[in-house]
Amino acid sequence: MWLIIHKNLISLLLALTFSLLFFIQPVRADIKKGEAFYKQNCLSCHSLSRTTKVSLEEAKALKGMPLWFAGSKFKKGWLEKWLAAPKPILGVKWGTLTKGANDHPAVDASKIPDLVSYLMTLVDAEIKKGATEPLPESRGKRKSMLGKTRQLFEKHQGCYACHQYINRLDKTIGGFSGPSLVGADKRLNPDWVYAFLKSPRRYYPNGGCPIPGESAFNKFTDENRAALATYITNMGVK
């Protein structure tokens, strides 16, 4: 009799520890599952192949931007939050010049870890790390650096003609045809922004964003690009 109770107790304890272990163990994201989910739910709008320039007819037929470099472009935490509850990024309805927000499909919370760990594997291997300078620690130095890079953004190139951003007076202003840069501090990786400013057509071959290149009158230097990447990815920081 005693033996039976004893045996039962042991197996109960064992079962308890196992189930506890199961709960405590962090949920390991499954990249393969994330990939399958992507192919089923996202690929129809977001291509995964590096595209080349297409005719504008074809460009207009696309339903979303390419994401083959998603893991380089976006911060992981932002992807997790945004995919669960997407908020407008572009100032226009996709493929039009009509002001307005795009309804983006939201992803169920249970699918996010797999999907995001898959997205983070989509990197552009050619992107150099550490091309940009981090913001200086001291408040004075930080302010002077941001002030200088703001000049580039506002006065040298007029990026805000197409992009919403936060100005010196904390006001959100700017044009609508491009993606808003408000919140870019949480959204974008500085190394990717630098790579994009260096070779914009690698990522968006039809070139809606007229980043000055070789033929521009007001050219960029690599130093300018690094400074702008720091400025954009610290949008709103003081």
């Binding site: 007029g158 007229p210 290149g213 070789e214 033929s215 521009a216 009158f217 007001n218």
Partner: peptide, 20 residues
């Protein structure tokens, strides 16, 4: 159009398109 407004003493708000 090719080099942007500053090339002809116009505003930098007119972007350069020569690389596109």
């Amino acid at each position: 159009i090719k080099q942007g407004g500053p090339k002809e003493q116009l505003s930098f708000i007119m972007p350069p398109w020569g690389d596109i």
